[in-house]
Write a protein that binds this DNA or RNA. Structure first.
Length: 203
DNA sequence: CGAGCGATTCGC
DNA sequence: CGAATCGCTCGG
């Protein structure tokens, strides 16, 4: 079990969302849902910038009931239902009225693997969390956990960093997945993942 | 109000 | 490769 501490809110307010998406790689997501504690290492992310990015639900400054949380101050969760079936988990970044978010696309299980196995009902451990819908399912994330403070270790979901770990992973930068509807913005290289990590989606 | 569609996954 | 499945968004 790694020695961890909560990632402070300022982490989500400094730099642009593309940098924050990279810096989230290697961080730990902790969930304590239905009495089931899990910990996982973030290994794949995508950045969405509501100011300039057609792929972002909040572009162009599109304020609706669903996107409202992205207009709040950084450090909150944005969870939504995708294809009527899967929940996708995002981290909101930046100041009020700057609607940016980072999608978690894959994580590596660290603790609570029995719970993940129960929730996912698949045998192969690789398939617990190697996709955005899969990881939400494995960690117990549903719409109930939208608009949650992530810089409070008392929350049912929070983000941590390891206290003593200077390891810097090799990061691959490439285009995002499933955003063809965004025309030329689908070409933005705003997907990041840890090189050679077995839990990265769509190898 | 209702048509159209999606930041995916799984099974055939 | 196509179905599943439903809330959100926008146009009428």
């Amino acid at each position: 079990m790694p020695d961890i501490s909560v990632l402070p809110q300022r982490f989500y307010l400094e730099g642009d969302v593309v940098q924050i998406a990279q810096k989230l790689l290697g961080k730990i997501i902790v969930t304590d849902i239905d009495g089931q504690l899990t910990m996982s290492r973030i290994v794949e992310t995508e950045a969405y910038d509501g100011r300039v990015d057609k792929a972002c639900h909040a572009y162009p400054q599109r304020r609706t009931p669903r996107t409202e949380v992205m207009f709040k101050e950084g450090g909150r969760s944005y969870v939504y239902l995708c294809y009527g079936i899967h929940y996708l988990f995002n981290i909101v970044t930046h100041a009020e009225n700057e609607p940016n978010a980072v999608l978690l696309r894959a994580v590596e299980p660290v603790a609570g693997l029995d719970y993940m196995a129960d929730r996912r009902k698949v045998k192969n451990q690789i398939n617990f969390t190697n996709g955005p819908g899969k990881l939400a399912s494995a960690l117990g994330i549903t719409l109930n956990f939208n608009d949650l403070i992530l810089y409070d270790s008392g929350s049912p979901i929070w983000i941590a960093e390891e206290k003593e770990n200077s390891y810097k992973p090799d990061i691959i930068q490439t285009t995002r997945i499933g955003v063809d509807y965004a025309d030329e913005d689908a070409l933005l290289p705003w997907r990041f993942y840890i090189k050679d990590n077995p839990y990265v989606s769509r190898k």
